[in-house]
């Protein structure tokens, strides 16, 4: 199981990346952390002409807080996210989610931007970005544009990223006072991709819930915000009867595909169970 032949270029700056992308188009692949691309290459599931290694562009790694927003460089590793005191303070949802991502050696290499670009429907970061209203910064030769996370994820492994673009940064607004968050997922083994999971946040004040966002992973081709379900809790508060009704509503909002071990019915059921648990956590 050895990778097919390809050429390799180590980019020294974004301009080089853009130039190579322009020249090679779809035949080039961006190598960031490599934790998804390298297995695909080793298994010969992917055979690009050229790998553009952006892993040395460390100016695009790291976490910064400015103007009420957290800026996460695309090349920030999962491990660095877990270790960031700023994130623990301002976006603890990410710190909670990181523990579900693979294993230490993978987290040392895999990157935030790489995970978003990959857009695995069961991955943690896409759902977190949607729930946190993240803006994803895409750069190309012609400039930079920002896409809301909700619009960025378009389908199964499909994103708004154009072949001539790279993700440079993700900008996330720091939630105001009174917001709570929770992240839950179910995986057969620690670090496996989730069967199904949920990233949640809401403003809680006494028994009143507002701005509730429930975003599911592993429950569709892309992260799904369950808008009606969320709205229902906002209107009715969290109670056993509201939960029952919400679980019904949720079934209509999710569209999971069966995986090797779990049918659609199982995934829907588990999503409903997680909904109850995540709401209990938020409301607690």
């Amino acid at each position: 199981m050895k990778a097919p032949p390809f050429a390799y270029a180590r980019a020294r700056n974004l301009a080089e990346v853009f130039e190579l992308l322009e020249r090679h188009g779809d035949n080039a692949k961006i190598l960031a952390g490599g934790q998804s691309l390298m297995p695909a290459l080793n298994m010969r599931l992917s055979s690009p002409e050229l790998l553009i290694d952006i892993s040395r562009l460390q100016e695009h790694a790291g976490v910064q807080v400015k103007d009420g927003h957290v800026h996460i460089g695309a090349l920030t590793t999962h491990a660095a996210i877990g270790e960031s005191a700023d994130l623990r303070k301002h976006l603890p949802l990410l710190a909670d989610a990181v523990e579900h991502i693979a294993h230490p050696a993978i987290r040392n290499c895999g990157t935030f931007g790489g995970s978003l670009a990959m857009a695995d429907p069961a991955a943690e970061w896409p759902a977190c970005c949607v729930v946190l209203d993240a803006q994803i910064m895409l750069a190309s030769k012609s400039g930079t544009r920002r896409v809301a996370a909700q619009d960025f994820f378009q389908g199964l492994y499909a994103t708004a990223l154009q072949p001539n673009e790279v993700i440079t940064e993700v900008v996330i607004p720091i939630p105001g006072a009174g917001y709570r968050h929770a992240f839950l997922e179910l995986a057969r083994r620690r670090g496996d991709y989730a069967i199904v999971g949920v990233a949640a946040m809401a403003k809680i004040s006494g028994t009143s819930i507002s701005d509730l966002r429930l975003v599911y992973l592993g429950a569709s081709e892309k992260p799904v915000p369950a808008l009606e379900t969320s709205q229902l809790f906002v209107l009715k508060g969290f109670s056993e009867s509201a939960l029952k009704e919400a679980q019904q509503t949720l079934a209509g909002e999710l569209d999971p595909a069966a995986d090797l071990y779990s049918s659609v019915a199982t995934k829907l059921h588990l999503a409903q169970v997680l909904t109850a648990r995540v709401m209990k956590q938020l409301a607690a």
């Binding site: 390298m38 080793n42 790998l51 993978i106």
Partner: peptide, 9 residues
């Protein structure tokens, strides 16, 4: 830092 040797060129 520990890494997977098979996932790095």
């Amino acid at each position: 830092k520990i890494v997977r040797g098979c996932l790095m060129l």
